[in-house]
Design a protein around this nucleic acid. Structure first.
Lengths: 284, 284
DNA sequence: TAGTGGTCTAGACCACATC
DNA sequence: ATGTGGTCTAGACCACTAA
C-alpha cells in the first residue's frame, strides 16, 4: 500500500478509472492513484468528484468558517496534485450546490445564511403586493424536552433523546407604518445534543437570521431542505396566536433541513396565513 | 464592417471582450469577432453565452424537435468556429436549465416533457404514503372564449383576445384497485392564437402528458414556471367537483408557465386536495 | 502591482452506445 | 470500429479587486 502520492482517498491503482494522465504525450506524468483503503463513496468516481468530497469533508470539519475564503484554486490544485481545471470543476459544482460562493477577483467563500440571499434563504414567503417588506420576529417559546416520537424519527434521534423546541412568530406590516400582523407561526425542533447552549434569551437577543446564529454559535450549517406543503384548517390555539378565526385555511409547511452528509438537523412546521402573502416557487 | 468570419451575432471588433485567442502565443489565431449589427443580448458577453443564445434561437426556431439530437459538440464547434470546450460550456448550462439532455455515447437531445421526468415534470404532488401512484385524468371542459382581464394580463394578451380554457381533474386511487378519488382540479388558460386547433376531442384522445401534446401539436414548449401557493377554502362548486365538503382547506397553486424568451404561454390554477397528498419542494 | 476567479483553447484519453 | 459525451490537463489571457 505504500509508494503513493499524497492525494487522500484517491482511487485504487490498476483500475481503469478516470484516466491517470497518460505518460505518453502530455507533459505531466504526475503520479496519482493512491491505493486508498475502502472509501464510503462509490469507488470509481471522477477525480473532481473526489476533490469535491474532500472539500466537503474540510467544510464539515470546520477547517474554513462560513463567510471565510477557502484557499485559491491554484493552491488547492497544488495541495491535491491535480490541475487547476479539475479543482475548478469541483468548486463549480459546490457553488451550484450553494456550499461555496465565488467572487471574481476576491476568492471563493464558504456560503453563509442571511448574508447571501435577500435575508432568509429558505423562506419562500412573498407578499402579494410587490412590496419586499421586512419581517419582524417574535419569540414565543424555547424549551428543552424529550423529542416526541415523530420528531425523533425524522431527526434520526433515539427514542427519548433531548430536543429543543422553539416557537416563534413572523409578522408583517400591511402598510407603511401600520401595526404588523402575524403571518407565520413556526414550530421548530432541534437535536438537543447539537444545540446545548440554546436558550430563549440567546434567541431573543440575536439580531439576524436564526440559521446564522446556528452557524456562528453551534457550528450547524443548513445546506438544503425538503418541504411538504398542505392546506389545513386553523386550530383554535393556532388561530388565536395568528389572530385569525378558527378554521381559517392555513398553509402548512413542514420542513426538514439537512447539513453535510444528508444529516437531518432541524424539523420545522410553519403555518402560513396566506391572505396577503403567498408561497413562491420556481419550477425548472 | 466586412471581412469577418461566419459567427453570427458575434461581438463587435476592437472591443475588449472575452479575449479573442491571442495571436501572440496560442497556436490558434482563428479569426473571430464579426462586426455584428446590434444584438439584443448584452453587447459584451462571454463567447459561450453567445453560443448559448444562438442555440436557444435555433431551438425556438424549431431547427431541432423535442426528443431529437442536436449536432455533436465537434460539429457545433466547427459551425461556430470556437473550440469544443466553449460549446461544451454552453451546452452544460442549457442542460442544467433543462433545455437539453446529455446522454453519454449517444448525443445531446432536446428536452421533452413526460419522457424526461417520472411523468409530469412540473407537478410536485406526492402521495403521503410512499406509493408512487399513477394519476388518472378526466377532462371536464374545453372551450374558446375571450380572455378575462386578469388572465389576459398575466398571459400578456390584448384585451378581449381569444383564449382556450381547459378544466380537468386528476384522480388517484387510495389503495390498489380501489376507486380513484379526485385530488387536483386544474383550470388552464392558453393563448388562443397559439392553440388554434385545440379541442376537447383532441385533448380527450391524447395519451400522455398535456405538455407533450403542446410540444408535438402546437410547437409550444414549456421551459420553466412560477408558482404561487396559498391555502383557500373550497367553494361549493369546487367542493362538489372534488368530492369534498364546502369550506374544506385546499391548496391553491397558481402557475404561470413560460416558453423561450420568458414568454408566458400558460396560466394554470390548480386546487389540490391535500388530505392524502402533499406538495413537495426542495430547497437549496 | 499582484492575486483571484472567468474565459478560451488544444489535445489526450476514457466510458458508453451503436453498428 | 466509430462516434458521442465525460474527464483531465496545461497554458494563455482577461476582468476584477485590493494593496
Amino acid at each position: 500500500m505504500p509508494a503513493a502520492t499524497t492525494v487522500p482517498h484517491s482511487v485504487p491503482t490498476s483500475v481503469p478509472n478516470s484516466q491517470a494522465p497518460s505518460q505518453a504525450v502530455g507533459p505531466a506524468p504526475q503520479g496519482r492513484a493512491a491505493a486508498g483503503a475502502g472509501e464510503a463513496a462509490p469507488a470509481f468516481s471522477p477525480l473532481y468528484q473526489q476533490i469535491k468530497a474532500l472539500l466537503v469533508t474540510s467544510l464539515q470539519a470546520g477547517e474554513w468558517q462560513p463567510g471565510q475564503a477557502i484557499p485559491s484554486e491554484i493552491e488547492l490544485a497544488a495541495r491535491y496534485k491535480v490541475s487547476q481545471g479539475t479543482v475548478r470543476k469541483a468548486i463549480d459544482e459546490m457553488a451550484t450546490d450553494n456550499l461555496l460562493v465565488r467572487r471574481q477577483g476576491k476568492g471563493t467563500f464558504v456560503a453563509t445564511h442571511a448574508e447571501a440571499g435577500t435575508q432568509y434563504r429558505f423562506l419562500r414567503l412573498a407578499p402579494d403586493a410587490s412590496t419586499p417588506a421586512g419581517l419582524q420576529r417574535r419569540l414565543l417559546d424555547c424549551r428543552r424536552m424529550r423529542a416526541p416520537a415523530e420528531v425523533a424519527r425524522l431527526l434520526a434521534l433515539k427514542a427519548g433523546e433531548a430536543a429543543v423546541q422553539v416557537r416563534r412568530l413572523l409578522l408583517a406590516a400591511p402598510a407603511e407604518g401600520a401595526a404588523p400582523l402575524p403571518v407565520v407561526l413556526d414550530d421548530i425542533w432541534l437535536p438537543g445534543n447539537l444545540f446545548k447552549g440554546l436558550t430563549a434569551e440567546r434567541l431573543a437577543d440575536w439580531r439576524g437570521a436564526m440559521y446564522r446564529l446556528f452557524e456562528a454559535e453551534f457550528a450547524v450549517r443548513m445546506i438544503r431542505a425538503e418541504e411538504k406543503l398542505r392546506a389545513v384548517a386553523a386550530s383554535a390555539e393556532d388561530a388565536a396566536v395568528l389572530g385569525v378565526a378558527a378554521g381559517v385555511p392555513l398553509l402548512s409547511v413542514e420542513r426538514l433541513s439537512f447539513t453535510y452528509g444528508d444529516q437531518p438537523v432541524e424539523l420545522r412546521r410553519g403555518l402560513y396565513h396566506t391572505a396577503a402573502h403567498h408561497y413562491r416557487n420556481e419550477l425548472n
